[in-house]
């Protein structure tokens, strides 16, 4: 028996009046994956997550969560989410909030277990309104764990958390992912995506513009840069560099040359064998460059 994927989005579009927030998005997330949904503000991340949760109806296209319609998956406690802001009652205590939401799933009380897991067991008696932003975020996390969901969606999950809280949070997430929980988190922190996700799905203007591991996404954005000092650099030498396969950009500043190419080895070999180049440096573009170039191309 093959189990259905955690999430399957097919040609998903969502329009708000004139604005097309999501424009034909295809995405399949397998079970047990930790996937980062990376993109600038307004890229359509939150809208897509809302469709996965059944909070928003797609204008067209299909959404399937563990082989079920989103609302059915929510009703069975298979999918949960940690939202960025709001969603808490200030007049309840931390413990009451967890008992309240926990009672709705109709199975054994997991209140103390989730408070423990979110690291806020000692706050159970405190009014939510008196908790700090980071503590409230941990409470949202505890609530999301109540149903022991198969799929956990996180929208900018560590906003407001201090370094310590952030580390503890990701440790807890990894532990559950190892048990088979699927994690899909939206973020605009490149570092967070690169560090914690098995896979990065880069979206821009409502479409997927790159999909792969951190290294693959970097590579997609166009290989590496080769920098060298070439005595007697002239137009003839530059012309030969431009003619090399996979080279897409050559910049010269005095004797300094900066070549951008898909195959950096070829460029380096040419520089070292056919010219007097020295101080050859090869750098991989960082994720930030990849992010910028890919999200701008999609415009």
């Amino acid at each position: 028996m093959t189990s259905p994927p955690a999430v399957r989005l097919t040609a998903l579009t969502r329009r708000f009046g004139e604005v097309e927030a999501v424009r034909g998005l295809d995405l399949t997330v397998d079970r047990g994956e930790i996937v980062a949904f990376l993109g600038p503000n307004g890229a359509g991340k939150t809208t897509t997550l809302d469709c996965v949760l059944g909070l928003s109806q797609p204008t067209s296209g299909a959404v399937e969560v563990l082989g079920l319609p989103p609302r059915e998956a929510v009703a069975r406690g298979l999918v949960a989410a940690v939202m960025q802001t709001g969603g808490l009652l200030k007049d309840l205590t931390v413990g009451e909030t967890v008992r309240y939401v926990g009672s709705l799933f109709g199975h054994a009380d997991r209140s103390s277990a989730v408070l423990e897991e979110a690291g806020i067991a000692d706050l159970a008696g405190r009014r939510v309104g008196l908790c700090s932003g980071g503590e409230q975020q941990r409470l949202r996390f505890a609530i999301a764990l109540l149903s022991d969901p198969a799929l956990l969606l996180l929208d900018e999950p560590t906003t407001g958390m201090d370094v310590e809280g952030r580390r503890a949070f990701w440790a807890a997430i990894r532990r559950d992912a190892a048990r088979g929980r699927t994690i899909l988190f939206a973020t605009h922190y490149l570092e967070e995506a690169d560090q914690h996700a098995d896979r990065i799905v880069l979206i821009s203007h409502g479409r997927v513009v790159a999909d792969g591991t951190g290294a693959e996404v970097r590579a997609l954005a166009g290989g590496r840069s080769v920098r060298a000092t070439v005595p007697g650099l002239d137009e003839t030498l530059l012309g030969r560099l431009r003619a090399l396969p996979t080279v897409d950009r050559v910049e010269a500043r005095g004797e300094q040359v900066h070549v951008h190419a898909g195959d950096s080895d070829l460029v380096a070999r040419h520089l070292l064998t056919a010219t007097d180049a020295h101080d050859v440096e090869i750098t991989s573009r960082n994720l930030e460059d990849a992010f910028l170039s890919l999200t701008q191309e999609a415009r």
Binding site: M83, L88, I143
Partner: peptide
């Protein structure tokens, strides 16, 4: 008031 606080959104993520 609860809806303006996003509580009803939280509840919509439960079977309620």
């Amino acid at each position: 008031m609860e809806r303006s606080l996003g509580w009803s959104r939280q509840l919509r993520l439960t079977p309620l």
